[in-house]
Simulated assay, not measured.
Amino acid sequence: MGCIYCFARPSHAYHDLSPGLDFETKLFAKPNAAKLLRAELMKKGHVVSPIAMGTNTDPYQPVEKDWRITRQVLEVLAETRHPTFITTKSDRILRDIDLLSDLARDNLVAVMISVTSLDPKIARTLEPRAPHPERRIAAIARLAQAGVPVSANMSPIIPAINDHEIESVVARVAAAGARDINYILVRLPHEVAPLFRAWLADHYPDRAGKVMAMIRDIRGGRDNDPNFGSRMKGQGIWADLIRTRFRHARRRAGLGGERLALRTDLFQPPEGAQMRLF
Results as ranks from 00 to 15, higher is better:
Met154Pro: 02
Ala208His: 04
Arg259Lys: 14
Asn182Phe: 12
Pro62Val: 07
Arg95Tyr: 15
Trp238Val: 14
Phe278Ala: 12
Ile158Glu: 01
Leu143Asn: 08
Ile113Val: 15
Ala273His: 13
Asp91Ser: 12
Ala160Val: 09
Ser49Thr: 15
Ala130His: 03
Leu260Val: 15
Ala171Phe: 11
Pro120Phe: 01
Val63Leu: 09
Asn56His: 12
Leu74Ala: 04
Cys6Trp: 04
Ile97Tyr: 01
Tyr204Asn: 04
Val48Ser: 09
Arg207Asp: 02
Arg222Lys: 15
Thr264Tyr: 03
Val47Tyr: 09
Thr116Lys: 03
Arg187Pro: 10
Leu126His: 02
Ile86Asn: 02
Asp206His: 14
Leu36Thr: 14
Asn56Phe: 12
Phe85Thr: 09
Trp199Pro: 06
His15Pro: 07
Leu277Glu: 11
Pro226Val: 09
Val76Cys: 04
Gly254Trp: 05
Phe246Glu: 00
Gly147Gln: 03
Leu200Lys: 05
Met1His: 14
Arg136Thr: 03
Gly2Glu: 01
His82Lys: 00
Ile69Cys: 02
Ser117Val: 08
Phe28Gln: 13
Ala34Met: 06
Leu185Arg: 11
Val186Arg: 02
Asp223Trp: 09
Pro133Asp: 06
Pro50Met: 06
Arg105Lys: 15
Thr116Asp: 04
Leu108Cys: 03
Lys121Trp: 13
Asn162Met: 04
Val48His: 07
Val169Arg: 03
Tyr204Asp: 03
Met214Tyr: 06
Ile86Phe: 06
Phe278Met: 11
Met53Asn: 02
Ile237Phe: 11
Val73Met: 14
Phe7Asp: 11
His203Thr: 15
Gln61Met: 08
Val211Trp: 03
Ala176Lys: 06
Ser90Lys: 01
Val109Tyr: 00
Arg172Gly: 01
Ile166Met: 05
Phe196Glu: 00
Pro194Leu: 11
Met212Gln: 00
Ala110Arg: 13
Ile218Arg: 00
Asp180Phe: 05
Trp67Ala: 11
Arg187Gln: 15
Ile157Ser: 03
Gly234Ile: 07
Ile137Glu: 00
Val73Arg: 07
Met232Gly: 12
Arg259Val: 11
Ile157Arg: 05
Ser114Glu: 06
Ala13Asp: 08
Ile237Glu: 12
Asn182Glu: 12
Arg179Asp: 07
Asn153Ile: 09
Leu77Gln: 08
Thr87Asn: 10
Ala174Ile: 12
Asn227Thr: 13
Thr57Met: 01
His203Cys: 11
Ser114Cys: 14
Gly236Lys: 05
Ala130Ser: 13
